[in-house]
Amino acid sequence: MSKESTDQGLDVRYIADLARIDLSDEEIAQFQKEIADIIGYVKLLQEVDVAGIDPTAHAFPVVNVLREDIPRPSLPREAVLANAPATIGDDSIRVPAILPDEEEGA
C-alpha cells in the first residue's frame, strides 16, 4: 500500500487499512469524495495565525493525577470469558492464529 497522491493527499484505501476496516469499492468512492470535501472545509484553519499559541490537549491544565499503588479487586474470570466471542477451556480468550511476522512486542 502506498499513499496515492489524490485530492488532499487522501487515500481512503490506505487509511481504511490502517483503521482495519474493509470497505466496498462504492464506499471507498463515496468516502473519497465526502471526506475530501470535509478536509477541504477544515483547511479553513490554515488561515488562523497560531504562532506562539500552545495546543490544548485537555480542557483544564491539571497535572499529576496519580493513584497509590494499592490493589483493587479484579473481575471474576467467568464474567470476562462470558463476554468473549470465543474461548479456550475456562481460562483464555481464543483468537485466530497470530502469525510470527505480525508479532509486535511492546
Binding site: V42, L45, V50, D54, T56
Partner: peptide, 8 residues
C-alpha cells in the same frame, strides 16, 4: 493546528 485553534 486544531489544538492550537482550540486554545484560541
Amino acid at each position: 493546528r486544531a489544538q492550537k485553534v482550540r486554545t484560541l
